[in-house]
Amino acid sequence: MNSRRLWAALVAVVVAAMAVGVNPAPAAAVTQLMKLYQEPGDYEARFPDILKLADGRLMAVWHKAKSHQGDPGTVQLSYGTANGTSWSAPVPALAHPSLMAGKDMRDPKLGKMNDGAVVMTFFVPGDGVYSSVWKPGWTRFDDPEKLVVAGIPGSVPAQHASVLALPDQGGSVNQVLIAVYNNTGAWFVRATWRPVTAPRLLAADAFQLAANAPAANGFTHTYTEPSFVQIDGTVVAVVRHELNNGSVSNGAPAKVLKWNPYTFAGPQSYYDVQDLPVQASSHHLLVTQDKKVLFTFGDKAVSLRPTQGILIDSPLAPWPTTGLRKVLIYNSGSGDQANPSSVEVSSGRFLTLAYNAKPKSTVEGGGASPNGGSLWIMQSYASEY
């Protein structure tokens, strides 16, 4: 090869290498990492939650029942390896499950306290919100305590989000926030975490995030299922919004609120209230390692309400109202889905729990599935959002 040809070949190699650097390979699509578990018989796995423990392992809980509502439901518990690829056989989450026999333990949620303990909350329709505690070294949760809250009018409250432990700051020690809702709207409760004294969650007061109300156009606005996270000194919350109790599918933007929990003195202290043009229901918020927020939700703007995800790059600034990139995470093909929960197992790698509530059958089709009653782990990466 003469010098001119050799030089041309070298230039081609350099250009190709630069092209690879400038245009990296596209990110992998959202994938089903594995089936965590399939409930036997007529039982279904619904309303999951997942959390990373202080020792790096994962903990997952979910609602086991024969129907979405109206049947007694229990909570199942499983432990996963740090990368989420191996899970223990599920067991009843409570050490003494007979204490809740015959009751529907709905929407189990996990919140990690600053001391490494985990508080599991759930609600029983018409009865109220309960909490149960797990501590490092234990295998199950202890006996539930009913949350006693003064100052919330209307029906008995329900809950949807995990207990949020605030980092200790100044004179604020062992303070937590608990998201609840009822027929008057969405609320949050301020409480003290007491590791060894009953009640473990001692409620102090409650404040309304959004009030249910009729509008001038005749629609009734209903606000439920508040969820929140903390980033630096700010709590960021999202509240589900529906019109006419969900009978109207359009025009129900989720509500985003922010406030400083250490200086909060009442509803006037919400320094940002914003309508987000997303019809989010049964949603979940996850703060990533780089302080973004992975916002996963059932999308009521799409048939069957599949689980979508949006990564909010600057969650403390006003959330963008245009150009939001929704990423499809899971669609079981059943109308009974959503209620996702996510965890970041390594930088930019997310696992999201999703469930298939179709009736069980030997073949797929006709609204049934061999994977009915199963709980799935979906894997995605920050680069996809």
Score class of each variant (00 low, 15 high):
V235G: 01
D71P: 13
S88P: 00
I50H: 06
V235N: 07
R325V: 07
G348L: 04
D336M: 01
L316D: 02
H96R: 14
L77C: 05
W376S: 04
G185C: 07
T322I: 03
W187Q: 11
F350H: 11
A45M: 01
A317F: 02
L353N: 13
A198F: 05
A25T: 05
S361A: 12
Q230N: 05
M34R: 14
Q159S: 15
P370C: 14
K103L: 03
A19E: 02
F297E: 12
Y43V: 00
P125F: 04
N250R: 13
G367Q: 11
V343Y: 09
P144D: 03
S303Y: 05
G70H: 10
N371D: 15
A9D: 07
P267W: 00
S227M: 00
V278I: 10
H68K: 08
Q169K: 15
G251F: 08
S281T: 13
R106E: 01
N83A: 08
L33N: 08
S88E: 09
V256N: 12
L10T: 12
L311T: 13
L328R: 15
A368G: 01
S247V: 15
G335S: 04
Y223C: 06
S332R: 10
S334Y: 03
S303L: 14
R46L: 06
V11F: 01
W319K: 06
D107C: 06
H241Y: 06
P267D: 13
S67H: 07
E225M: 02
S380D: 08
P92N: 00
R5E: 14
A338T: 14
I329C: 07
G233K: 15
G372W: 07
S98L: 10
D299T: 10
A60G: 10
A8D: 09
L257V: 08
V61S: 07
N245Y: 11
T85E: 01
Y37A: 09
H68E: 10
E242A: 00
A93V: 05
N217Y: 05
S342P: 08
A54C: 11
P277Q: 03
S132Q: 04
S88D: 12
V15D: 10
A25Q: 14
Q169R: 15
T220S: 15
A19M: 12
T220M: 11
L110C: 04
S347M: 12
N339R: 08
D143A: 15
I329R: 14
K35D: 07
V287Y: 03
G335Q: 14
S131Q: 04
S332D: 08
N114H: 14
L164C: 04
N244K: 12
P108C: 08
Y271W: 04
G21C: 08
Y181F: 03
G137M: 00
T352V: 11
I50C: 12
N250G: 14
P136S: 06
A382F: 04
N23V: 00
T139Q: 11
N23D: 06
K103Q: 07
R240T: 00
